[in-house]
């Protein structure tokens, strides 16, 4: 009966997604002005190539900001950059931005990137690792969906924008293991109850994302890209999105609230650290 229960919950989730779909309006952003920040690091070439690929893709203009002078601290660097960004639609940034983090590089972003995430109200395309192809990567966005509608709308809109006419958009809803841990703490470790709760949460995820799936499908009809939606559990959302981006040879996309106390910012940092692919960070 376990499989039957799962099938019932899955199918119920699908219908509820259609019956309770919140209307989501996607508006495709225009990307004209692309700004690339230099840091004189090993990532220079990758960042530059990706920025050029973005210019080709969106037929925009490229503005280069030279590396800051030596001796400036992180906040000074950010102030200098901010002054050069008012018209930017997309900012391509290398990470860890000239800092040598040594063994901490898997756990910490640089102080400049940390400040950027909190203080720059522009979409940031952060590059941490070398890439093999540049044009393809930009056409395969993997969007990490959040339960909050305002996060979903912006992330999906940028996802559609990058997928363009011939790309592939992957919408990923992931259930955090911490959610399951909290449920285990509340109800105990009865396996049957846990399976039932996992099915219910999966159903809820499907239902809650109904509006965004419908909106992306309609956008797909107009634009011609391909999209898919899936719900995952068992891995942290950031890890899930990062591994999907690697599989798709695309970019990871996630929206966040640029408030140092917000969980979405923590997840954003987590995604940048986990991802081998560029990450598009969308502040709200």
């Amino acid at each position: 009966m376990e499989q039957e229960n799962k099938d019932v919950e899955e199918s119920m989730g699908l219908f509820e997604a259609a019956f309770q779909a919140r209307h989501v309006e996607l508006s495709i952003p225009t990307i004209n002005s692309i700004v690339v920040l230099h840091d004189d690091s090993d990532q220079e070439e990758t960042t530059m190539n990706l920025a050029k690929a973005a210019v080709r893709k969106f037929q925009g203009t490229l503005k280069e900001i030279p590396a800051p002078v030596l001796g400036m601290d992180a906040s000074e660097k950010v102030v200098v950059f901010q002054e050069a960004l008012p018209d930017a639609d997309l900012v391509v940034v290398p990470a860890p931005f000239g800092e040598d983090l040594g063994s901490l590089s898997t756990e910490s972003l640089s102080s400049v990137i940390d400040l950027f995430l909190c203080e720059t109200p522009k979409p940031l395309l952060i590059v941490r690792h070398p890439l093999e192809s540049y044009d393809t990567v930009l056409s395969n966005p993997v969007v990490l969906l959040d339960w909050q509608e305002r996060f979903q709308g912006i992330a999906a809109s940028y996802g559609c924008c990058f997928a363009g006419n011939d790309g592939s958009l992957d919408l990923v809803a992931a259930i955090a293991p911490s959610t399951m841990d909290e449920i285990t703490a509340l109800i105990g470790e009865n396996e049957d109850d846990m399976i039932a709760f996992r099915n219910l949460i999966q159903r809820a995820e499907t239902r809650l994302n109904g509006g965004i799936v419908a909106a992306v499908q309609k956008m797909e009809s107009q634009n011609g890209f391909q999209s898919q939606f899936s719900v995952h559990h068992g891995q942290r959302p950031a890890s899930m999105c990062a591994s999907r981006a690697t599989e798709a040879n695309g970019i990871a996309v996630c929206a966040y609230l640029p408030d140092s106390q917000s969980t979405s910012l923590g997840r954003m940092r987590d995604l940048i650290l986990k991802s081998k692919q560029p990450v598009l960070c969308l502040p709200i």
């Binding site: 259609a18 779909a21 799936v213």
Partner: peptide
């Protein structure tokens, strides 16, 4: 009328 059948399509392929 508010039911949205497109919410059911997770992958058109």
């Amino acid at each position: 009328d508010a039911f949205d059948e497109w919410a059911l399509v997770h992958d058109r392929r």
